[in-house]
Design a protein around this nucleic acid. Structure first.
Lengths: 287, 287
DNA sequence: CTTCATATGTAAATTATTTTCATAAAATGG
DNA sequence: CCATTTTATGAAAATAATTTACATATGAAG
């Protein structure tokens, strides 16, 4: 899974020929995936054994294994290296949005700090009250989504995307409260202020944001998500998919922290839903 | 990309040996992807040439190409064939949620009706007013997300997840209005009622829902998303990722339908955001 | 300037894959 | 029901791909 990383040669240990090979592969993965060792060697201007050695150095068993490893990724990972192609037709738009969303999920997963997630889950499970803060559409969605996930598990949680309100809530927070914040950019001064207020009152704070950002610096538990932004202004950010998955994973961990309680609440929600619909209980928990 | 489909032998044209091969491949993709043609032939109890012929029949160029095609999929597609494994550790939870989300995106993309999407996009772009309806958390999120996407493009849109309100809005809708509805289950009687009301007033209706469901039947333009639900009740439905992508694609198509207008509005939103933050304009449009 | 380590290529050996051809099994038509 | 054709399959040969073994060159270290 770390071919991606290996190919970028962060340690700078590649020889000249190997660099040429790495460049060629990253530039045209489709070619690399379909080529024979001779084709690849020829186009990179090296000999076939050099290619085999290159593959081994990358941690593969040989050239065929390298191709398979490479093929496993392109759909989800390596497209980031491809130049951003303009989309015009509906086919291209759909293809591009789906690929970018999958990439965002892939990248988030690679960098996810599970220790921070576990810590956050335990804080949330143990909280007497949870405030979820987020603003400006995208982060507001995350705050509401956390609410939507956690109330089902029996957590006392409220979500708010009202800056003034959030500041008051943070200023009034007492012991047992936990504050959760989301900020895609990490530069939401009002959220920073809320976090500072909470911290000043000894209330633990959890954020999902860009590492090293003002928001990250103001929080106790930081779940860092650092993704490159696309350049198509018409396109909503694919980072949302990654954030959504972070919320899902967090909610799942909270559920696992006290399964018995989660099961009880989920069952009663389900019963209510079935009663209000047509008695078909195969449905998911909530429309 | 359609190896998946080809391997399932829906036309039933496989011979006995080919069926054995298909079964072996689907049962243990990891093995198939890493094996040599001899290993695979031996384990399936056939001769190597039979394997080559099998690959060709599947539309591949040969056995190596088959392996590459196969390797391209597992991460996003073929995991559906794997039995649902219980997750326990945070690693497993994260891995599973990310894989399921990617699968949902993959499957949605495979079945997406782009003609319906285009039709929906043109209806939305031409509307004088858009009502986005959705209830119960998940679909409410989709309605609000559509609002969040479309207002940025200069569309007059409002989102509501209040059943009573929705019915009144639908009943009051005049010419030029378009109603958009989301329902994961397709069995939201109140949404069906709103759609009927709108239809009765000659207002076009667009829905994202399960095909063949009551909601689908009540709408003019149906964007069908049919995905299997997971069996882990602690886990939020991965269908949300697919729906979110549908909204994104739709919003992108709406933007492309009148780029000049979309660009103008997006620019002013961006200026406002930058003014309220620290002047860094690299940020995405909205937190 | 020599020595050693490393990088790389050539050619041979090995291995993998495909083609060719023969045979057997199943389907088709009388 | 038999003859004929088609189709499926494997064995062996041919080809192609990959790797190994070895030789040479390059450059760094002493």
């Amino acid at each position: 899974m770390d071919l991606l990383h290996a190919l970028s040669d962060e340690e700078g240990t590649f020889s000249a020929r190997e660099k040429a090979l790495a460049r060629l592969v990253l530039e045209d993965i489709d070619f690399a995936v379909n080529a024979s060792i001779n084709d690849l060697a020829e186009r990179a201007g090296v000999s076939p054994p050099t290619v085999t050695r290159f593959c081994r150095r990358l941690g593969c068993q040989g050239f065929p294994d390298f191709k398979v490893q490479l093929a496993k990724m392109p759909y989800v990972g390596l497209r980031y290296f491809a130049p951003e192609t303009p989309t015009e037709t509906p086919e291209e738009v759909a293809e591009d949005i789906v690929a970018k969303a999958q990439n965002a999920l892939f990248q988030m997963h690679r960098q996810l700090d599970l220790a921070a997630m576990s810590k956050a889950a335990h804080l949330l499970r143990g909280a007497d009250f949870i405030h979820a803060f987020g603003a400006s559409g995208n982060s507001a969605m995350m705050a509401h989504e956390l609410h939507n996930r956690l109330f089902r598990l029996g957590c006392p949680v409220s979500a708010s995307s009202d800056h003034g309100m959030n500041a008051m809530l943070a200023a009034a927070a007492g012991p047992g409260t936990v504050v959760f914040g989301s900020s895609f950019s990490g530069r939401d001064p009002m959220l920073v202020r809320c976090l500072d207020l909470a911290r000043g009152r000894g209330v633990p704070t959890i954020v999902v944001t860009q590492s090293g950002s003002p928001v990250a610096k103001a929080a106790d538990v930081v779940i860092a998500v650092d993704l490159p932004e696309g350049r198509n202004i018409f396109r909503p950010t694919s980072t949302r998919y990654a954030y959504l998955a972070v919320i899902d994973i967090l909610a799942n961990l909270v559920a696992y922290a006290d399964r018995e309680k989660a099961t009880r609440i989920l069952r009663s929600i389900k019963e209510e839903l079935v009663r209000r619909r047509d008695g078909d209980d195969r449905q998911a928990l909530g429309d």
